[in-house]
Design a protein around this nucleic acid. Structure first.
Lengths: 348, 348
DNA sequence: CTGTTAGCGCATTCAT
DNA sequence: ATGAATGCGCTAACAG
């Protein structure tokens, strides 16, 4: 196996043609006679020829791959988006280079790596980027699209949080509940802010007074939201707080800003020998696997689709002659859906 | 933003040096005077220079990235392995190119793509490859390591299935159970075969007769194991079969070859108004998230570590002058662990 | 339709 | 320690 790899020159020689022709059959150019094409292909096979992606890239100024920046791809949400991205890139025959930006330290390092190493034609980021970082992308003329982030200064695609929260609360309202608690994440998360907005909107649209005491944000428990924003522990503590109140101040339904939080709440409820949906109606957000297993009513988000569509936006940008020439950015909003299961009951 | 990107020539000119020198500071060669180094770096900053990965790769004959072939990275197992791989590659400053080989069709397509496009220095495959495919890798001189597959003709790393099954059964044995049912996956899976072996070994080592009627493989339900091998539906059906037997033939403990199967079994049990661990002791395999939530005793596998170590093996091969020169392959075996929770009770 | 030539951006000799 | 020349494997523009 000592023979070094064949290149187009070898193939050209073997086939008795010029390298230009070889290149043409490689790129499926139509301007090649069927017969010569066959000759070349035979030579390729014989020499076990494999085109060199780097050389092609260098010559064509295109890598045919895109970077994906994701934090903790352990979480269902990211996995699903990633799958969508994968599917989307496949359509364009692009390869997917994965960068984990879990920790802050990695974040810096990987972003600058993607930025400095010219290894990809574009970038998909499934998390929040600072304005400075976004600016660097523009400066580098490197196409970027933000997924799950509403941003005006760059291409982005995200899910309508306000609507999601509204759908959840409306469902509860429809079932006859009027005392609804909202277990939110910390308000430094834009998603938390918008979901809160949706909750309030749903309430006020129904002419219900907004009981601020039932709107519990995650900011009260900073130690529980350091790593991740919408944790189980957070939901548990939030629910405990509610459970500790006098009976007349109790809500009849709980809307948690994430399924994980809902599960935390559920545990707190069960610890008091109470149950769902008998004592409390409970609704989550995300529709993770666990939600199905626990029969939890929840809001499902089109994660896969978001990833897939994100790619389309990116490719549009990549294909453009000068990515950031026009200062006009694409921004797409997707709709979340209510998934009704068995954790909410009708109030008589 | 119309100015085209700077290259080493531009930098060299700006700094008043030759391109060789620029290249040297880029590669952190020691043979450059501190002062000129600074000049060059300043020029780089000024021109906003970003080295071109493809050009470097072409010149150096190295891509600095590795491909990872994984089926359905939705599953916990693959996600964990992937995280390990990610971590491992980071250590070597290698990039990770992700290929989804979920379906058979994708399998073919992506493998041949990785093989034909010279885009990576090596490949990690987290699933079964045919001998022919393995041969093609060798032929292409492309380093390959198989993860979670015992294979002698190529580098590989995997977890000791026999031992895992043994640990599970031994635990049950220690608790005083002697009538233990094994809900296995289909035997076309090498993992299923080995786990069965482990079960039998544990039993016979304890001088217990092996009750074949309690060893239920997944092959009986081909329609339930088409997509995936160790499914919830399968576990459910297998358990139903057991539940349908006369009382005297009932086991006291159930060992499922996957947590998912265990969950299926659990559902079947609960449907009969029986419960775990009161009526049956239940133990799973994999230690997925759900197992923790359900308090299921199970066998945990060092997935992360396996991914990480897989990278080490790969890098060894990549760094070697001629990857497949010596016909000697590395093969590492990792140990699974018993995780005791609350789904098994002591038999009096 | 096909062969030839000139880059693509960098690493790496080989001189100096 | 540094500059100049050569080649990595391929595409694209040009000439025929």
């Amino acid at each position: 196996m000592g023979e070094k790899e064949a290149n187009i020159y070898d193939v050209a020689e073997e086939a008795g043609v010029g390298i230009g022709t070889v290149s043409r059959v490689l790129n499926e150019s139509q301007k090649v006679k069927q017969k010569t094409r066959e000759k070349v292909q035979k030579a390729m096979n014989k020499l076990n020829y494999r085109p060199d992606a780097m050389a092609r890239g260098l010559a064509r100024q295109r890598t045919n791959s895109a970077a994906v920046l994701v934090p903790a791809f352990t979480e269902h949400f990211f996995v699903e988006v990633l799958r969508g991205v994968q599917k989307g890139l496949e359509k364009y025959e692009m390869d997917l280079v994965l960068y984990d930006v879990g920790s802050q330290e990695k974040k810096e390092r990987h972003v600058s790596r993607v930025l400095n190493e010219k290894k990809v034609d574009g970038v998909l980021a499934i998390y929040t980027l600072s304005p400075e970082t976004i600016a660097s992308f523009k400066k580098a003329d490197l196409p970027l699209v933000l997924i799950n982030e509403a941003e005006e200064k760059i291409d982005s695609i995200f899910i309508n949080d306000i609507l999601g929260a509204r759908k959840a609360v409306d469902h509860l309202l429809d079932l006859g509940h009027s005392d609804i608690a909202f277990l939110n994440g910390p308000l430094h998360s834009p998603h938390a802010v918008k979901r809160l907005k949706g909750v309030k909107k749903a309430l006020s649209d129904s002419r219900l007074e907004i009981r601020e005491d039932l709107l519990i944000s995650g900011d009260l428990y900073p130690e529980l939201t350091e790593e991740s924003d919408f944790t189980e522990e957070l939901g548990c503590e939030q629910m405990k707080k509610i459970l500790g109140r006098p009976e007349k101040k109790q809500p009849t339904a709980i809307f948690a800003a994430s399924d994980i939080q809902a599960i935390g709440a559920l545990k707190a409820i069960e610890k008091e020998d109470l149950s769902v949906p008998e004592d409390y109606s409970l609704i989550g957000y995300d529709d993770i696997d666990l939600a199905r297993h626990l029969n939890l009513t929840t809001i499902s988000q089109p994660m896969f689709k978001m990833g897939e569509m994100g790619v389309d936006i990116l490719m549009e940008r990549i294909t453009a002659d000068s990515p950031y020439e026009d200062k006009k950015f694409i921004s797409r909003k997707l709709e979340p859906d209510l998934v009704i299961r068995n954790s909410c009951r009708k109030l008589n």
